[in-house]
């Protein structure tokens, strides 16, 4: 299965990745061969089969609606690349 340069670039943009021009071909080729391999799945009839999202049957996990101690604000932002006065700082969004 062929996957085009444009498709790679389109999906990369969705995933917020920039692929170097030199690498687009390699990615396209590798993804193409992986996708060709997964085409094998089409040999399985799944028309009557429900999808599995989790290996173990899980039910909704409820807890009491009570406030509990959580991470301290300063601890929570301690790893931020840029923070000020208890806030995350990001590059300008609106000019």
């Amino acid at each position: 299965m062929k996957i085009s340069r444009e498709e790679v670039l389109y999906v990369a943009n969705l995933a917020r990745l920039t692929i170097d021009d030199d690498d687009v071909e390699t990615f396209a080729e590798q993804l193409g061969s992986i996708l060709e391999y997964v085409e094998n799945l089409n040999r399985v009839d799944t028309s009557e089969v429900l999808p599995t999202a989790h290996a173990i049957e899980t039910a909704n996990a409820f807890r009491k609606d009570e406030t509990t101690r959580h991470l301290d604000r300063n601890d929570a932002i301690a790893n931020a690349p840029k923070a000020e006065d208890g806030h995350f700082i990001v590059p300008k969004v609106i000019e």
Partner: peptide, 9 residues
């Protein structure tokens, strides 16, 4: 979705 169905099998 296809992969998740095969997972069931």
């Amino acid at each position: 979705k296809k992969a998740s169905q095969v997972r069931t099998l």
